[in-house]
């Protein structure tokens, strides 16, 4: 499978600093996006730390050490999913510790959505309200559950999705990295097929741009860099009240290419 990806981050139209961080680790096919919080520039400390710790953990930690899982993960999870989960737990602990040691960092925290592809299995780990979406045969599907108060209310049937969108409590998170020494990490696995498009984004996108607009943009702009730019442009046009960060990943079938190169080789021999 061929993978083309691009990420972009923008401060938006209202804020003065960008607390989002993201990283694309091409060698590992690892994609991390984090939205920091906690004023006075410490939000970006937390989000940068989340990205750094997860990248380092996934790149260096040996397979076996993943066996020492901190809690009983379902046995059917792949080792890569366990590692990614541990990486997120590690990031949480380090942000928490740093905030405990440095009084000026008190209250800092971050969301994180990290995805890791091996062969065709995509592991998704996340905490907070940054989302992962999958565009497949024209349908945009959210792969993560927001850990926000309003999303929880919708899940419990207390309010409708429309009421959630209008609520002034949208910024209230139920889980984030750095708030407690331990955090519950949501992990999921999805099998990727060619022509899938994956989007990771901070809430600065999803609050400004509707899902049909996102789906339309991802379908119209087949180059990830162009799609990322367009999405950020849309968020800013619609108000840009928060930092906006997106990572667009496109999975392409490379069998076509092989087929054609084989034909070319075949014809070359004949000549």
């Amino acid at each position: 499978m061929q993978i083309v990806s691009n990420g972009l981050s923008d401060v938006g139209r209202v804020r003065t600093n960008n607390e989002d961080s993201f990283r694309i680790v091409e060698g590992l096919n690892l994609f991390i996006l984090s939205d920091g919080m906690g004023g006075e520039a410490h939000g970006e400390v937390a989000s940068a730390m989340a990205v750094e710790v997860i990248d380092k953990y996934c790149a260096t930690e040996k397979e076996d050490s993943a066996a020492t899982v901190m809690d009983a993960a379902p046995a059917n999870w792949s080792s890569q999913s366990r590692r990614l989960k541990n990486a997120v737990a590690q990031a949480n602990f380090q942000i928490y510790q740093s905030a405990q040691k440095n009084p000026e960092q008190r209250g800092m925290g971050a969301t994180v959505t990290a995805v890791w592809l091996k062969d065709s299995l995509l592991s998704i780990a996340h905490v907070g309200d940054s989302r992962a979406y999958l565009l497949r045969s024209g349908n945009l599907q959210q792969l993560t559950n927001d850990h926000s108060l309003v999303a929880e209310q919708v899940r419990r049937g207390l309010i409708t999705p429309q009421q959630a969108e209008e609520s002034d409590m949208q910024s209230v998170l139920l889980r984030a990295l750095g708030a407690h020494p331990e955090v519950e990490v949501d992990v999921d696995e999805v099998e990727i097929i060619p022509r899938d498009v994956l989007l990771l984004c901070s809430d600065g996108l999803t609050r400004m741009v509707t899902e049909p607009e996102i789906a339309g943009t991802l379908q119209a702009e087949t180059v990830p860099a162009a799609a990322a730019e367009k999405l950020i442009g849309l968020a800013n046009e619609n108000g840009g009240v928060d930092n906006v960060t997106v990572i667009v990943v496109r999975f392409e079938d490379d069998s076509n290419k092989r087929w054609f190169s084989w034909m070319r080789r075949g014809s070359a021999k004949k000549d």
Binding site: M37, M169, L173, D203
Partner: peptide, 16 residues
Amino acid sequence: GRKTAAPKINETMVLD
């Protein structure tokens, strides 16, 4: 009870 539960929140916050 909902509107009065908290003032308008712009900054992201985590509930303990």
